[in-house]
C-alpha cells in the first residue's frame, strides 16, 4: 500500500470500499497491529501501532473477514475463553457472556459447538466475541458477507445500536448499499491508494450528480446528447446520462430523439464506485 492517509473521528462509522485487491484488508490488519508497516505512521487512540500493540488491542474489537471461531469449544466457551485473553475476571466475564448472547440472539445455542451454527449465527457470535472487552473501536472486515437479508439487517441494527452507544466503527464492505446506509464517511480505495474520501452524499453529488437517466445505446441518441452538451457515458449497450434534472433530460430524449426506453433514477454510491474504479473484472 502507499499514499493512504485517513483519520477516523471518535464515535463515527467509517467505511473502506474498493474492489478485490484494493488493500482494504491490509489496511484493517495494520489498524489491528497484526501487519507491520514498512514505512509511514499509523496511530490508534493516539498510540503508535508499531510500539503499543498490546494497549491498542486491549481497546479494540475485531470481526475478521473469515469466521475464526474456535471449533473445539461451544458457543459459551468461545466467549469465555476469549475473555481470558483480555484479563477479564471470571465472574465479570460470565456476566458479559450472558449479556452478549442475548444481544446477538444466541442464548439458546449456548451449549452448541460452533461447527453446527448457521452462517448468520456464526457471524453474530463473532460480533459478540469482538464485544467481550467492551471495545472503544470496532473493526469489521466485510461483516455481512454471505448473509441472508434478515441476518444482514439484524447486523446493521446491531452496528447502529453500538454506534449510538459511542463505539467508533471501521468497516470494509463490497455492498455499496450497506456503506451508504451505515457510514458517516468513507473512502474508496484501489491498487493500494485512497481515491476519494467523504460522506456518501457528497461523493454522489461530486462525481455523479443527484440523478441518472439511462437510455439504449443508439447513434441518434449520442448525436442528440452531443448537441445538448450533456454529461454522459457509454456502458456497453446502455448510455448513462448524469444530471441534476432527470425530468428535463428524459423529456428531451423522448421528444427530440425519438426514443422508446428511457429510465430515470437517483444516483447511488455504486455509480460513484464504478466510475472511479472502472468496470474491469478484478482477480
Amino acid at each position: 500500500m502507499d499514499s493512504v492517509a485517513f483519520s477516523v473521528e471518535e464515535g463515527e462509522m467509517f467505511g473502506f470500499l474498493g474492489p478485490n485487491g484494493a488493500g482494504k484488508t491490509t489496511a484493517m490488519r495494520m489498524i489491528q497491529c497484526v501487519s507491520p508497516m514498512t514505512s509511514g505512521k499509523l496511530e490508534v487512540f493516539g498510540m503508535d501501532v508499531n510500539t503499543r500493540q498490546r494497549e491498542i488491542k486491549f481497546w479494540m474489537g475485531v470481526v475478521p473477514q473469515e469466521n475464526n471461531l474456535d471449533p473445539d469449544f461451544t458457543v459459551y466457551e468461545n466467549l469465555l475463553v476469549f475473555s481470558r485473553y483480555f484479563d477479564i475476571p471470571e465472574d465479570e466475564a460470565k456476566r458479559r457472556v450472558d449479556e452478549l448472547l442475548e444481544f446477538v440472539h444466541l442464548e439458546e445455542k449456548r451449549d452448541t459447538m460452533t461447527e453446527s451454527l448457521s452462517g448468520g449465527m456464526k457471524r453474530r457470535l463473532v460480533l459478540a466475541r469482538a464485544l467481550i472487552n467492551r471495545p472503544r473501536l470496532l473493526i469489521l472486515d466485510e461483516p455481512t458477507v454471505g448473509l441472508d437479508p434478515q441476518s444482514r439487517h439484524l447486523m446493521w441494527d446491531k452496528l447502529k445500536g453500538l454506534k449510538k452507544e459511542g463505539v467508533t466503527i471501521v468497516l470494509t464492505t463490497h455492498y455499496l448499499e450497506e456503506a451508504a446506509q451505515l457510514c458517516d464517511r468513507l473512502v474508496i480505495m484501489d491498487h493500494g491508494e485512497i481515491l476519494v474520501e467523504g460522506t456518501p452524499e457528497d461523493m454522489i453529488n461530486e462525481y455523479i450528480g443527484p440523478a441518472i437517466v439511462e437510455a439504449d445505446n443508439d447513434p441518434n441518441v449520442i448525436s442528440c446528447l452531443d448537441k445538448h452538451q450533456a454529461n454522459y457515458e457509454i456502458l456497453g449497450d446502455e448510455i448513462q446520462i448524469y444530471t441534476d434534472d432527470p425530468q428535463e433530460i428524459a423529456d428531451h430524449l423522448l421528444s427530440e430523439c425519438r426514443l422508446t426506453s428511457v429510465t430515470a433514477r437517483a444516483s447511488t454510491l455504486e455509480d460513484v464506485f464504478l466510475k472511479l474504479t472502472g468496470r474491469k473484472l478484478r482477480e
Binding site: R54, F58, P64, N68, D70, Y85, N133
Partner: peptide, 10 residues
C-alpha cells in the same frame, strides 16, 4: 485459524 483469532486480542 485459532492463532489469528488470538492475536486480535492483547
Amino acid at each position: 485459524k485459532t492463532f489469528d483469532a488470538i492475536i486480535a486480542t492483547p
